[in-house]
Simulated assay, not measured.
Amino acid sequence: MTRTFRALAAGLALMAGCAAAPAALADYKGPVRLVVPYPAGGNADTLARLFAERMNRELGTPFVVENKVGAGGTIGAQSVANAPPDGSTLLLAPTAVHVITPHLRAVPYDPLKDFVPVAKLSSSIGIVTARRDLPAKDMREFIAYAKAHEGKVSYGSAGLATITHLQGAVVGMKTGVNMLHVPYKGSAEAMNDLLAGRIDVIYDSVALPQIKAGRLKALAVTGTERHPELPDVPTLHEQDLDLALPSWFALYAPRATPQAAVERYAAAAGRVMSAPDMKGLLIRFSQYPSFQGPAEFSRQLLKDDAFYQQLIRAGNIRLE
């Protein structure tokens, strides 16, 4: 009888502890690791540092950016998937990590089951950027140049299976041009080699400051509208190329993170991204606020996952 009572008491204590856990985690006040799966200097890192500073102010909780680099974002994503679901670790990652890379190669995590979507933060305005001395002033001339120099024209990316890789692959698929893909560990490295003339083109918005400084030149904007900072640069659509690929940055928590904690971070992120000065700050690196909370972003994630899966299969796009 005593043994039964003790077992029952222990079970009730465990249940009480579990019931109290979500409330405690929702009010987590310790430092938050904000993992960025790419090196410093790229748009993911720039956004993360701005976002971390504002979240610190909003919640009074230190947000510490950690660049966990490797395998096209996979290593950083895996580290968050395996992190304790206690509100202490979040992932800030671009489109590729969850809805592109898993359709091109095996990844050590389930992109839709091992994470809780917290919020979509911003969307990207892609820029097709060329070395300054490339003999082409727009995308039409670049395609003609690439066809005349078949197999000798190169484009760099932030890594295999990133959107900066996929955009170049889709351009090649749609135009029939064979270009050499040079993957890097991040956008900053690709841009540095473009500045040095070691590659010809990148499909990456990180180049905006160098374009404005006259060190690189823009051939096209990948969005449906012209870039506010580059009003004279035509879109790909204006140049008869349809390349409207969803591109965004989002916030994720490890699977099993309590919903109360997710909602708390999402609400704070919504306030941060809707701040009056945020639009002006983001456009400097070709981003714009496009906040979505957990439910809306979860639907968007599934939609974009299906889109990229179909695109990759239809185009028979593969890793080199």
Rank of each mutant, 00 (worst) to 15 (best):
P84N: 01
K152I: 13
S124A: 14
T74C: 01
A106V: 11
G70Y: 04
V170N: 08
H98K: 15
L92G: 03
L104K: 06
D86E: 11
K174F: 05
E150K: 14
D114S: 08
N178P: 04
A83D: 02
L90K: 04
V80S: 04
A146G: 07
T95E: 05
A146K: 09
Y155Q: 03
R140Y: 07
D114V: 06
G87A: 02
L112I: 09
E150G: 03
S154W: 10
I75W: 12
V171Y: 14
A96K: 01
I100T: 11
V128M: 15
L92I: 03
V97E: 07
A83R: 12
L91V: 03
G73I: 09
G168Q: 14
G73Y: 12
A136Y: 12
K137V: 01
F115C: 00
T95W: 12
P117S: 00
I127E: 07
T175N: 15
T164Y: 12
Q78T: 03
A161K: 01
A83Q: 09
V153F: 12
M179C: 11
G168P: 12
V97T: 10
F115D: 00
A136Q: 08
V171M: 15
F142L: 02
F142E: 08
I127M: 07
F142M: 05
H98C: 05
E150V: 12
S123L: 03
T162H: 10
G159V: 13
G72A: 06
V107K: 00
L160Q: 15
D86F: 11
M173D: 12
K120V: 01
G172A: 01
M139I: 05
P102T: 00
L134N: 04
S122P: 03
Y109V: 01
V177D: 13
R131F: 09
I163S: 08
I143Q: 03
T95Y: 10
G70N: 05
A148S: 10
G168Y: 12
V128A: 13
F115R: 00
S79M: 15
A146P: 07
D114W: 08
